[in-house]
Design a protein around this nucleic acid. Structure first.
Lengths: 141, 141
DNA sequence: ATGCTTTAGTTGTACATACAATAAAATGTG
DNA sequence: CACATTTTATTGTATGTACAACTAAAGCAT
């Protein structure tokens, strides 16, 4: 059977990698009680209290509507809080969110250690850099 | 603000690329009336009539339950049909599905041409190969 | 100052995807 | 052969994610 079109198509290969690494990342982030994406959102808010949702959605490269949903959930869990400021919304960390910072960093470290063990540190680093630059090119399209 | 942890984390970078290229792929596949993933599923079925769901989910690297949902949808659209064979399910193309083959191939070509125009053919090819081999390594974990 | 345009965020809706629990068939082992 | 184990598929449920339509605020132009 001819299924070579799959491995030569970047839509397929990129999403396949996404699924594979998401699974691993979710395992490592489990102790934080958050999925990786939420963990990174918390880190951004902790490191820049009062950041706007716009900035957050740009940094995370997700749609504004997606971000609204994420913040809704983190607010319910009292990890961050919104302060409406005209038409923009500023997002601030709450004590429970700040307390998670260390745990989240540990999860990130374990995740990285785990995939570097399989891929080699050097390859993994170059891969992440290539992924970023590819995304940046494609997002301009 | 320190947000370097994002670009150095493969969970983030891989999924970001996934989102970016999915958007492009969906645009190019729009004329087929299918999303890219369904298009590729049809191609696999057309090229191997009677393929089992298990094989399909392995080739596409998606969970069996996800594949069940996909086939449900394609069956509703009369693009493929199931034939139960003991505990396995064989999937066959239907005329409407076969008729789509050309259109799907064209969409794939446009997609590839589009990202190669931005990234360069060589880089894109190497990237896809690296993505595959990275996935394979990680999936073994 | 009034009205047009752009920007930020939210809500409704839809889809891809997964996991856990289940059913049913196949396989292996005493 | 009968029972336990493994394999294949399905279903219920949950999450991430997006787009389109909308609301409200801000900026701009006459």
């Amino acid at each position: 059977m001819d299924d070579s079109f799959l491995s030569s198509c970047m839509f397929f290969t990129a999403n396949r990698l996404g699924r594979a690494i998401t699974k691993i990342a979710e395992e490592e982030f489990a102790p934080t009680g958050l999925t990786p994406m939420y963990g990174y959102l918390i880190r951004l808010v902790n490191s820049a209290p009062g950041i706007t949702q716009k900035e957050l959605s740009e940094k995370l490269s997700i749609a504004p509507s997606t971000l609204t949903r994420f913040i809704d959930k983190l607010e319910t869990k009292q990890l961050v809080e919104r302060k409406v400021h005209g038409k923009t919304v500023l997002v601030y960390p709450m004590p429970k969110g700040q307390a998670l910072e260390g745990e989240i960093r540990n999860a990130s470290k374990r995740l990285k250690a785990r995939y570097e063990a399989v891929l080699g540190e050097e390859f993994a680093t170059r891969m992440s850099m290539d992924l970023i630059s590819t995304s940046e090119h494609l997002e301009k399209t």
